[in-house]
């Protein structure tokens, strides 16, 4: 069987899918896993920029599908970590250049050589999302604790369920602001879980360092920085590999934002 194919999607755009994908990929690679990221957002590629690999792209996903190059040639190796590759999206092509069947075939070609294949899905529920979903063994839904993002996440969960393959789905709540949650001005983790009834994989606090890292093309999880978001993402990576890291408990041990976040989590849960 080989690799686990994990599609990262959200429905709504701008919730932090691509950044989460890049950081998760780096975190998994840092755990000694062989990882390949596929940018499924054809026409609007961005994963390359977030990962800082944009200048090393020669071929792309559409070149592979249309037979202009071999799969290996299109894969960009991230030299900063042991085993991390990017399969970039085409920037100048239409999304219909790739079909769900192409994606399944592609994933199957890669399965034998990697531990994790992360697919960064485009926003929306149309073609690009269908492509990203087709080869998925699992789906991670990224959402923000805001009504429009939660609504779209619900729609996506429904669409994944409707796929009929019983694809395991988990939820990552991104850009949580503990102070706002405490004031009652932001949906809490439990509010979101209450509404979406989907297993929680992690909570990433809002963190300015994420933008700084995107500016630099250097994902936060690359070096073991102590930033709240990168620690949360590293925990998510460990959970993906099967480590049992309780979401509330671990966060309570840490200071500041995390402790407050954990307290809110428990307060409403009890």
């Amino acid at each position: 069987m080989g690799a686990r194919v994990i599609t990262i999607t959200s429905g709504k755009g701008g919730v932090g899918k691509t950044t989460a994908t890049a950081n998760l990929a780096v975190a998994l690679a840092n755990l000694g896993k062989k990882v390949v990221c596929i940018d499924a957002d054809i026409g609007l590629r961005n994963l390359d920029v977030v990962m800082g690999l944009e200048n090393r792209i020669v071929y792309d996903l559409v070149d592979v599908v249309e037979g202009r190059c071999k799969l290996r040639q299109a894969m960009v190796k991230d030299k900063r970590v042991p085993d991390l590759y990017l399969l970039p999206a085409a920037q100048t092509r239409d999304k219909t250049a790739v079909s769900p069947q192409d994606m399944v075939a592609l994933a199957n070609q890669l399965r034998g050589d990697y531990d994790y294949i992360l697919i960064d899905s485009p926003a929306g529920i149309e073609w690009g999302f269908r492509n990203a979903l087709a080869p998925a063994d699992e789906v991670i839904i990224i959402t923000n604790p805001e009504a429009p993002a939660v609504r779209d996440a619900d729609r996506i969960i429904g669409l994944v369920e409707a796929e009929g393959r019983k694809i395991p789905t988990s939820l990552v709540i991104n850009r949580a602001k503990p102070d706002m949650i405490r004031r009652g001005d932001m949906l809490s983790v439990n509010d979101v879980l209450d509404i979406l009834s989907t297993p929680l994989l992690g909570v990433i606090p809002d963190d300015e360092q994420i933008i700084v890292s995107s500016n630099r093309g250097s994902p936060l999880t690359l070096d073991n920085q102590k930033s709240p978001a990168s620690e949360a993402i590293r925990d998510i990576a460990r959970r993906i590999t099967g480590a049992k890291i309780p979401i509330g408990e671990l966060e309570r041990k840490k200071g500041g934002l995390f402790r407050r976040l954990a307290r809110l989590f428990h307060r409403s849960r009890a």
Binding site: A147, R151, I181, G184, D185, L187, S188, D191, D194, I195
Partner: peptide
């Protein structure tokens, strides 16, 4: 009600019709 509570109630309602 806090704005979060309002958001939750509104979401619950809108999701009923979405679903």
């Amino acid at each position: 009600p806090t704005s979060a509570e309002i958001a939750k109630e509104r979401l619950k309602l809108v999701l009923v019709s979405d679903r």
